[in-house]
Write a protein that binds this DNA or RNA. Structure first.
Lengths: 192, 192
DNA sequence: TCGGATTTTCAGAAATTTCTGAAAACCCAG
DNA sequence: CTGGGTTTTCAGAAATTTCTGAAAATCCGA
């Protein structure tokens, strides 16, 4: 592995972290390398920098492409494929969340719904269903929140995150307003 | 594996899902089983229901305890250990997030800070640092948001999630207020 | 302290995942 | 077409992770 020390530290750490998620170590390393690279890299450059076999890099890149985490680029007059991560880090976050939702949350929700359709054959099953309904509702809540929030443009999103729990105040106001009788429909927020 | 079909479906799915995260299949299965169980189970009951070896179950339970995901209980007059998941599903979510933060986000933030302290020795390293600063700031933002939001009681949290992107309206109001000249210090939110 | 019940440990076996080199497939300029 | 440069595939090798049985440790009532 022939890398500036600073980069190497990060690449190794990210590889380890990757293996704690579903991603394998080398895929994590490849991604880390591309993330900090000044320009798009081709497969041989990755091989050289990380000391992996050519075929391993090929498979790693294939996987990253399947996740939509790298973009394929071409350099004029060069037939090789070059790979890069999006410049906008928020785009990366969005892709990551989107893909994990697609692969993990959605199938789980489908399964839970199926289970909840079944007729329980015993008190034990009845209890299991009740428990799984709780889980289902939780996932639905998150899922709905996400499809909602995903639309926000990045500035708004950052604003919201920076606000943190201060948003709570708004809820308190909402509560107070709710106590006022005769309140009409609409958004009982600060805009009133 | 001797389980009601409905439970078995869930246990198997959850096991698979577990292995897509850092958790191994059997640990996932044990957790799933405890989650839907009507009462706390002892190790032998888990062995019997999931068809695993006694030692495997022992290690799985140890791991779940290390994650604070199961509580140890005792039945009067019985020397065996019984295990259960918290009844409150939100407690489970909180533990899960807390532990993952501790194991993944915090160490990464530490590493990123260390890297950012170093003096870049080349333009390549300078660029890598700039990129990693972006990542660092992103993690800080999430981390700060989380420490803030974690304090909210569950009702408020659910309220917030249900609200979804409608919270955006509040930001719009905030913007409008900011345009008003001569505004004094304090929180220019609904609470004014 | 003893003895039975229970849990934990751990070395090796089994299963799974990752990695590699060699060969095949692809792709385009000439 | 053809040929060289490039990427992909894939069977087996290597590495890692998971799982097991047997033995050791622990724990507690008598």
């Amino acid at each position: 592995m022939q890398l500036p020390p600073l980069v190497q530290t990060f690449v190794l750490h990210f590889g380890e972290m990757g293996s704690r998620w579903g991603i394998n170590r080398t895929v994590g390393q490849i991604y880390a390398l591309l993330f900090v690279a000044e320009r798009a890299l081709n497969a041989d450059e990755i091989v050289e920098r990380l000391g992996l076999s050519r075929s391993n890099v090929s498979m790693g890149l294939k996987e990253l492409q399947a996740w939509n985490l790298v973009r394929l680029q071409h350099v004029p007059g060069d037939r090789r494929d070059y790979f890069a991560t999006p410049d906008d880090i928020w785009q990366i976050v969005r892709t990551l969340v989107e893909e994990r939702k697609k692969r993990e949350v959605d199938p789980t929700l489908t399964l839970l719904r199926e289970i909840l359709m079944q007729e329980p054959g015993s008190p034990e099953e009845r209890h299991a269903q009740a428990r799984l309904r709780e889980m289902h509702d939780l996932f639905e809540l998150f899922s709905g929140w996400y499809t909602d929030v995903r639309r926000l443009d990045t500035d708004r999103l950052v604003q919201l995150l920076s606000l943190g729990a201060k948003v709570q105040r708004i809820l308190e106001v909402k509560d107070r307003l709710r106590l006022v009788p005769g309140r009409r429909r609409g958004s009982p927020t600060a805009s009133d």
